Every structure is written in structure tokens, then in C-alpha cells.
Simulated assay, not measured.
Amino acid sequence: MTIEAHLATLEKKHGALEQELHAAMNQPSIEDEMISDIKRRKLRIRDEIERLRSSTH
């Protein structure tokens, strides 16, 4: 897999997590721990995207 393809995959995952987070925050029955987990996963993906982008420049 090329770096560009990997970046595209990570960006899709990040977008999906953003939608999942938005949906979870609109449900009063969702526990804070679940929301925190989604945020952590988003952050890890964002960090990986930034690392890949900086390594290609």
C-alpha cells in the first residue's frame, strides 16, 4: 500500500469516527467512557496521519 493510499484509508477512518462520536454524543444513554474511547481512537489516527504527512515532505 502506498503512503497516499494509507493516508486516504486513515482519513476515511477518522471521518467515520467523527460521525460515530457525533451520534454517541447525541444519545443520553452513552457512557462517558465510550465517548472518551472514540476520542482517543480519533486522536491516534490523526497523529498517524500527521506523522505520515510529515515523513513525505
Rank of each mutant, 00 (worst) to 15 (best):
R46A: 15
L10Y: 02
E20N: 06
S36H: 04
L21E: 06
E31V: 08
M1A: 10
M34I: 08
E4Q: 15
L10M: 01
I30F: 02
E48W: 01
R44W: 14
G15T: 11
P28Q: 09
Q27V: 03
D37P: 04
N26V: 06
P28F: 04
E33T: 07
E18H: 00
R40P: 06
K12F: 12
S55L: 09
E33L: 08
L17M: 07
E48D: 04
L43I: 10
R41E: 12
H22N: 14
Q27W: 06
Q27N: 11
T9I: 07
R44H: 15
Q27R: 08
I38D: 10
T56I: 14
T56Y: 11
A5C: 02
E31W: 05
E33W: 07
G15W: 09
P28L: 05
N26G: 15
D47Q: 14
K12L: 14
L10T: 01
D47P: 02
E4I: 11
I38A: 13
Q27C: 00
E48K: 09
A23R: 12
I45C: 12
D32H: 08
I45Q: 06
R53G: 12
K13I: 04
R44D: 15
L17P: 07
D37N: 13
D47R: 15
L52K: 01
H14F: 05
T56G: 05
Q27L: 01
I45A: 11
P28K: 10
I49T: 04
R53F: 08
L17N: 10
D37C: 03
A23Q: 12
S29G: 08
P28E: 09
T9Q: 07
D37M: 11
A23L: 11
A5E: 10
M1S: 06
L10S: 00
E31H: 12
M1L: 02
Q19W: 08
R53N: 13
A8W: 01
S36P: 00
I30M: 00
P28W: 03
K12I: 12
L17F: 11
L10P: 02
D47I: 13
E11R: 11
N26D: 13
L21C: 08
A16M: 06
T9S: 09
E48C: 03
I49P: 02
S29H: 11
L21T: 06
D37F: 10
R53V: 09
I35H: 06
H22L: 14
L7I: 06
L10N: 00
E20S: 09
E4V: 11
E11L: 01
E31I: 07
A8E: 10
A5K: 09
E48H: 04
E4S: 13
N26I: 05
T2E: 08
H14C: 04
I3E: 11
S55M: 08
A5Y: 02
E48P: 01
I35N: 00
M1F: 04
L10I: 00
E33I: 03
I3R: 08
I38N: 11
K13R: 07
A16N: 09
I3L: 11
M25I: 08
A5I: 05
E18Q: 05
E11V: 06
E33M: 02
K12A: 15
K39F: 08
D47V: 13
K12M: 14
Q27T: 05
M1Y: 04
M34R: 10
E20C: 02
H6V: 14
D37K: 12
L10Q: 02
M34C: 04
H57N: 15
